[in-house]
Design a protein around this nucleic acid. Structure first.
Lengths: 353, 353
DNA sequence: ATTGTGAATGCAATCGTTTGCATTGGCATA
DNA sequence: TATGCCAATGCAAACGATTGCATTCACAAT
C-alpha cells in the first residue's frame, strides 16, 4: 500500500557500475552497447523490478505515444466499435488510447480537447458533439501541430483528415431497395439537419425518389432528434409511427435514419395490426444488434464501424509519419452495407436472419 | 502542420520579467502571489497561447491525474456503461481516463497493465479477463503502491477493493420469480464455472430451488461459454433451446445467465410454436436493450452498471485520499433489479414494456 | 614507438514544472 | 535608528530518461 520509491534507470546503473546513459541505451537495444552489458541490464531490471517511467521519457522525447480519442458517448455500440477499430491498428505501432467523452456537449468536448493537449498526446481522433457549432477548439489542435483525424460527424469547410460513412449512398441504396420492393410512397425519419450525416441521408433519400420519378412529399419527411439515449429514440419512433397513421394516405415504406426510431414505429404498427412489410416496409440505419432480434427483423445499413476505426487510425499514422508539410489531408469514405431482413422483404425470401 | 515550438512557463516569465516559479505559482493560484501578477500572467497565457505541459508537471509532482481502466471489451453495453459511470465521478476530481481493452486475453491484459504502470497512472480500475488465472500482474500493481479497484469479474482470495453485482441475489430473485409464476421445472443456462459471477448465479439458482423444495436436476443445468460476441451467444442460445426440446420432460422455465442466450432460445421456441411464457417462461441476465424489443419481451436483471462504475470510482478516490496504510480494502455489492416483462409473466399483466 | 580505428561507454545538458528555502524591500513598532 | 515582520518573489535543485558529443581503451597497421 505504501508508495514504494520506484527504481530508476540510475539505480540500475549504480548497481552495475555504469552510467544511466548506458542503461538507457541498453534498454533501447542500441547497437553500440555490448551484448554482455545488455544482458546484465536486463537481469538487473528483473532483480530490481524496474518499471520504465514513460512520463520522463515522454518529456524528454517530446512524444507520449498516447493518442486521444473524443467520442460523443462510449455507450453506444457505434462508438464502442470505432474505438475497437482504432485500437486494433495503433496498438501494433506502440500507441495507446486516451478516451474522453463529450456527451455531445460543447463544454465537455472543449475541456476534453484541452486535457488531451495538456498530456501532449501525439494525435487526436474525434467525432464532433451534436451541440458544437463553434470549432475554435478544433482549430487549436491543428494550430499546435497535433495530427487530427475526424470521423463520422465531421466539420465541413475545415481542412483536416476525415473518415466518414457514405451516408448519401447508404440512404440511396436503402430507398432504392424499398422502391424495388414495390413501395411508392416512402416516408423518411430524418435527424436534425445541422448535422452532416443526416443531411446526406436525406439527400440520398431524395435522389432515389427522383430517380424513380417519385415526388418528394414534405409531409413525409419528419425531422427529430435522433441523438439521445436509446429508449428515448424508441419512444420518438413510436410517436412518429403514430403520427404517420393520422395522415390521409398512409405511406407504404419508411426509411429511418435510426434503427431505434424504426423499431419504435414497428412496435406501434404491430399494436395496430398493420402488416409489415406488406402494408408498410421499413429500413433502419446502423444495424444495431436489436434490429436482428425484433420481429419482423429490421432491414438496416451496417456501417462497418470497426473498419471505420481502422481507417481513422491508419490516417493518423500516415499523417504522423509524413515529414513536415508533406501531408495533405484526405477524406475516406466507408461504404455501408444494406442488410436485408424481413421488415422490407416483400418479394423474395429473407437472406439473413 | 509544422511542430510549433510550444510556449512554456518560462516564456511567460521572461515576457513579464519574473521567474518561472512566480508564473507557476500564479497559475496554481498560490496565496502569496499578488493579484496583479496573477492577472498579468493570465493575460500573457492568452497572448502567447500557453498550453500547460502535463507531462512535465506529472514528472515533477509524481502524479499524472490519469487513472487507468482495463475492460475486457469496450463494445459491450455492460462495460461501456461502467466506463461512463467511472468517468462521471472522477472527472469532477480532475482525473482523466486511460482505457485498455484486454479482449479477454491474458497477454493483452498483462501488457495493458504494464502500459498503465509505465505512464504512471494514479490508479487502476479493472475487470479480469476471462482467460486470466495467473494474477501476478495484478499483484504487481498492488506491490507498486498503485491503488487498485476490481469490478464485476474479481479475484477471490486477493485482498483489494471490489465492486460486484450481487449475482447470487439476482439469480435467486429471478428463479424465485419463475417459481412464483408457477414454474416447477426450471433449467439454467450457466456460464463457465471458473468465473465467479457464473458460480454465484448458479448458486443463487440452486438456493431458490431448494427453498421451494424443487429438486436440482443436473440435466437442466447447461454450462457454456457466455463470453463471446453477441451473435455467437445468440447462436449458442438457439442450440441450448433446441437441446432442451429433446429431453423427455421439457422444462417450464429457464433462467439464463445471458440475455442473448435466452433470446436465442426464444427464437427457437417461437419457430417451434412453443408458447412463451405459458409453456416455458424465461428470464435473462443484464437487461440489454434488445431484451425490451424481442417478442415476447424478455424479463431480465438490470445490473445498474452506471452505478457500479460510480461506485468503483468512489472506492478509488477513497483509497487515494486515505493516508498511507490507513486504508483497508472494501467490497461493495450492487443489488440488481428484476425487470419483469412478458417472457415470464404468466399471471398478471406486464409492468414494463 | 607512433598513429589510426572502432567498439563501448561516459559526460552533461535538456525536456517543462514544481517547491523548499532563501532573499528583498517596505513598513510598523520599539 | 534599529529591529522585526510580512508580503512577494527569486534561486536552484529536483523529477527520470535521452542523446550529441566526447573519451577511453585495446588492438592493428605502419
Amino acid at each position: 500500500m505504501s508508495k514504494k520509491k520506484k527504481t530508476t534507470i540510475s539505480d540500475i546503473a549504480k548497481e552495475l557500475n555504469v552510467t544511466p546513459s548506458t542503461v538507457s541505451r541498453a534498454l533501447g537495444d542500441h547497437p553500440k552497447i555490448s551484448d554482455s552489458t545488455k544482458e546484465a541490464v536486463l537481469d538487473m531490471v528483473e532483480k530490481l523490478n524496474y518499471q520504465p517511467n514513460n512520463i520522463a521519457s515522454a518529456l524528454r522525447k517530446g512524444k507520449s505515444n498516447i493518442i486521444g480519442v473524443i467520442v460523443p458517448t462510449s455507450d453506444r455500440q457505434f462508438f464502442a466499435s470505432i474505438i475497437r477499430g482504432i485500437e486494433e491498428i495503433i496498438r501494433e505501432e506502440g500507441y495507446h488510447l486516451m478516451i474522453c467523452q463529450s456527451d455531445d456537449q460543447f463544454d465537455k468536448e472543449k475541456s476534453g480537447i484541452d486535457t488531451l493537449l495538456n498530456v501532449r498526446v501525439d494525435g487526436i481522433i474525434a467525432s464532433v458533439a451534436k451541440e458544437t457549432t463553434d470549432i475554435s477548439h478544433y482549430k487549436k489542435i491543428k494550430k499546435q501541430g497535433v495530427p487530427l483525424v475526424l470521423y463520422d460527424r465531421v466539420i465541413d469547410s475545415f481542412d483536416v483528415n476525415h473518415v466518414v460513412s457514405d451516408d448519401f449512398l447508404g440512404a440511396y441504396n436503402a430507398v432504392t431497395h424499398l422502391i424495388e420492393q414495390g413501395c411508392t410512397r416512402i416516408a423518411h425519419f430524418a435527424g436534425k439537419q445541422h448535422i452532416k450525416i443526416y443531411q446526406d441521408r436525406l439527400q440520398g433519400y431524395i435522389k432515389a425518389l427522383r430517380e424513380h420519378s417519385i415526388p418528394v412529399d414534405d409531409e413525409l419527411i419528419i425531422e427529430s432528434d435522433l441523438i439521445q439515449d436509446t429508449y428515448s429514440i424508441l419512444r420518438t419512433g413510436r410517436e412518429l409511427g403514430s403520427s404517420l397513421l393520422q395522415i390521409p394516405e398512409m405511406p407504404d415504406g419508411i426509411f429511418s435514419s435510426s434503427d431505434f426510431a424504426a423499431m419504435g414505429a414497428i412496435q406501434v404498427f404491430k399494436e395496430k395490426n398493420i402488416k409489415i412489410p406488406d402494408k408498410v416496409a421499413l429500413v433502419g440505419y446502423s444495424n444495431d444488434f436489436s434490429a436482428s432480434v425484433i420481429e419482423p427483423a429490421l432491414t438496416s445499413l451496417d456501417q462497418h464501424t470497426i473498419k471505420m476505426g481502422n481507417c481513422a487510425a491508419r490516417l493518423f499514422l500516415e499523417q504522423m509519419n509524413s515529414k513536415e508539410g508533406t501531408f495533405t489531408s484526405k477524406r475516406k469514405l466507408i461504404v455501408p452495407e444494406l442488410i436485408v431482413r424481413k421488415s422490407s422483404q416483400k418479394k423474395q425470401e429473407p437472406i439473413k436472419a
